[in-house]
Design a protein around this nucleic acid. Structure first.
Lengths: 254, 254
DNA sequence: CTGAGTGTTCCTTTCTCGGGAACTCTCTTC
DNA sequence: GAAGAGAGTTCCCGAGAAAGGAACACTCAG
């Protein structure tokens, strides 16, 4: 209550907004950006010059695009994370064993970020790509993470981001979600049954630090046709769980 | 001459400088950043709040770090590039066939950016990682790219970045470099003989668009002990060249 | 209890940034 | 080849944003 709202600087804000526009429009010229952001052309022009100077923006013939400066720093941000380093080989193994798509997710500011993926021989192609940010409540990975966050934090996240629906199976009720999280804690495994994408099921397991803080989660995703019966209920969960255990140990003791 | 210097906005500039500090210091607290950038604590504080709001910065217990916001946009910037999409499978194949480290580089603003790497079974571990920016004149990849840029552009790049030395084999003379580039154009293959790192040799080949613009280059890197005789002069060049050809065709016709 | 180190907040001044308008330049179109 | 539409660029001015300094909380160590 008494805490002051943090000061947000307007000028950098505008810079970021311009980059965001570039991403949303998938490349644009100066005039389009000005229209999209509501800023004056001259303003956008100065921002673009500044961004270009730092490789954050590139100009290719007749349009501007996001540059590789972001990639450079972004890769640094990922490599810096110990979970990424230790989980990578396990994810690879998991994809190979199952032939499906294996994923690694961590939480940042209340949402899930896919840090890494590895494709097995039969892996589905999804709209999800590395770097993508997702709501936690509608993926197996996200639920696995939520299940191990303190209840206060979970409520905080839900207050901030809500429970937007994606399919008819999405959990949109807070009570129901908490029940589900309870079950996930019991079994140490989270399932996603077409809650974000129709036709897709996932199995995920979290891994924790030595003082029981959740560090992230890994999952296997596959079409419903291959995700049923024993494979869905035992075989894959077992593999995912094992991999998560290995990661947990390696993160702690290395 | 007559062209006005582009306007660089100071406030975003400060934001970027703070992020850069975070990367250089590999995480830092507010006071350290203030010292490092020469800005007032209160100023840094406001910038950090703004950056945090956009996931560009995260605060973990007692220090600030670069956040995954950069990763999110950076991945978008990479995926957007057609070269990346088409080269990826070929790089993988190349790593598998040779057992060594295979790389993809593109040029941006006069320097080379590693877009992707794939490790074969015997791959060396290098200081280079994906996203890393390098001088063009001292890697095989960079020279392969330089060889196919217009001469004016090459001179422009050299004016801007110079020819800094890394080992006793680095080419530091402009004349010599141009001779080398000529040779590369003849053979369609570039070599790096311990010009950036002692003990490391590379073989690289560029790929061009239909109107002869260079799009990027791929390479195989290995320790000198495995890079000699026929393997270095024929076997590996042949594989790299083939892969580059496949990429060139796929980029053009798909 | 004190002191040194954080991070945060407030206030004041300065000069940066944003908008508007004028100016190029390059293509189209007639 | 003149006229016009659209782009990007440059210039200028006034409002108000951002930077700095100082004072204020907090935490931890001794």
């Amino acid at each position: 209550m008494s805490k002051k709202d943090p000061t947000i600087l307007e000028t950098p804000e505008n810079s970021f907004q311009i980059v965001e526009s570039l991403k949303e429009l998938d490349g644009a010229n100066l005039t389009e950006i000005a229209r999209h952001t509501g800023l004056a052309k001259s303003t956008v022009h100065d921002h673009l010059s500044t961004l270009q100077y730092h490789n954050y923006v590139v100009k290719e013939d007749d349009e501007y695009n996001v540059g590789l400066g972001f990639f450079e720093i972004g890769e640094y941000a990922r490599r810096r994370l110990k979970v990424y380093q230790t989980a990578r080989p396990e994810i690879k193994e998991l994809a190979k064993e199952t032939g499906e798509l294996a994923n690694l997710m961590v939480e940042e500011h209340g949402r899930g970020v896919y840090l890494h993926r590895e494709r097995g021989d039969n892996a589905v192609t999804l709209d999800t790509y590395t770097g993508k940010r997702r709501y936690l409540h509608r993926t197996a990975l996200g639920k696995a993470i939520l299940a191990h966050l303190p209840e206060d934090r979970v409520n905080e996240i839900l207050d901030q981001h809500g429970l937007p629906q994606a399919t008819e199976n999405t959990i949109t009720d807070r009570e129901k979600l908490f029940d589900e999280l309870e079950k996930i804690r019991d079994e140490d495994i989270a399932y996603c049954r077409q809650e974000r994408v129709n036709g897709l099921k996932c199995v995920a397991a979290p891994f924790l630090s030595s003082n029981n803080e959740v560090l992230g989660a890994i999952s296997v995703a596959a079409p419903t046709t291959r995700m049923k019966g024993e494979r869905f209920e035992e075989e894959i969960p077992e593999l995912v769980l094992q991999a998560a255990n290995v990661i947990e140990i390696n993160v702690t003791y290395s």
